[in-house]
């Protein structure tokens, strides 16, 4: 009896190894699904953040160039590299074949600007300088055309040309003044909102009573575009942790902080230091 059953027991379980392999495969598929499913969700918010920064960088140069040039506002970005490159081929036209590479290399820096926000603050004067350059070639070309004409023609037209030139100069001066005024306005706006932020935080501070002297505390505050507070780091303690904590709490209570409606100004407020005195 037993001798008959023994060999059958060996045959009883078909494909143990095959079953184990199938089981392993199913688990690998399951974990693959889990991993890829979660990774997709992770990358989505990052992409939206990148889009925000690009928007800021695009709006910024347009606003600074607008007062300078009456000509369409968007072209200057494209025109900038052209006047720089044009003078080069005139003296050295024979070496031209490699120059297209230089022209492609030059326009690339303005494209890199939107990548990092902190650098963008330092580069702020740069677009103004480059924006002021384009009018210069225009200056040269405009007076040159009347001068070509006035050699054969009457001296009266010289005066007209002169007056045209002076008018243009006046216009440019006016534009510069307007630009300065605008910048001053921007500074005013920034100062106004900084004061508003300070006031809002100040109003939320529950001052600890009876501290000696006039302690000062300094915080580094990083904001999100909506005015929400991302982080508050103590930079210089007042020496009284009660006071430090009160101010830190007030910063969190004051959220969202007032920000100018124009998103272009946000870079001024993204990362700022907050100084609070115990007595005003």
């Amino acid at each position: 009896m037993q001798t008959a059953i023994q060999p059958d027991n060996h045959h009883a379980e078909p494909g143990k190894v095959r079953a184990a392999l199938f089981a392993l495969l199913i688990h690998l598929v399951f974990f693959g699904l889990l991993i890829f499913g979660l990774n997709w969700k992770n990358e989505a918010p990052e992409a939206t953040i990148v889009e925000l920064w690009q928007n800021f960088a695009e709006t910024e140069p347009i606003k600074t160039t607008q007062p300078i040039k009456p000509t369409p506002p968007t072209p200057p970005v494209v025109q900038k590299p052209e006047p720089k490159v044009e003078p080069k081929p005139q003296p050295v036209e024979s070496k031209s074949p490699r120059q297209p590479a230089i022209t492609t290399a030059e326009p690339s820096p303005p494209l890199r600007k939107p990548a990092i926000s902190l650098k963008a603050i330092k580069e702020k004067p740069a677009p103004k300088q480059t924006a002021e350059k384009p009018p210069e070639p225009v200056k040269k070309t405009v007076p040159e055309t009347p001068s070509d004409k006035d050699i054969p023609q009457k001296p009266v037209e010289k005066k007209i040309a002169n007056t045209q030139a002076t008018e243009q100069k006046k216009q440019q001066e006016q534009e510069r003044l307007a630009l300065k005024a605008k910048q001053a306005q921007i500074l005013d706006e920034i100062a106004k909102y900084k004061a508003m932020i300070q006031a809002k935080i100040r109003s939320r501070i529950v001052m600890p009573p009876d501290l000696p002297g006039n302690p000062v505390v300094e915080f580094r505050v990083i904001l999100l575009p909506g005015g929400d507070v991302l982080s508050v780091d103590l930079r210089r303690s007042s020496g009284f942790t009660v006071f430090d904590d009160a101010v830190e709490r007030a910063v969190h209570l004051a959220r969202p902080l007032p920000l100018p409606p124009d998103p272009a100004f946000f870079r001024e407020f993204r990362d700022f230091s907050l100084t609070v005195y115990y007595r005003e």
């Binding site: 078909p14 199938f22 089981a23």
Partner: peptide, 21 residues
């Protein structure tokens, strides 16, 4: 749970083959 899941799938396939046979 991972161990339980692995063994249950192993037995699922083993039983599948055994019962089919």
């Amino acid at each position: 749970l991972l161990v339980a899941s692995f063994f249950s799938w192993w037995f699922i396939f083993r039983k599948l083959f055994a019962i089919r046979q």
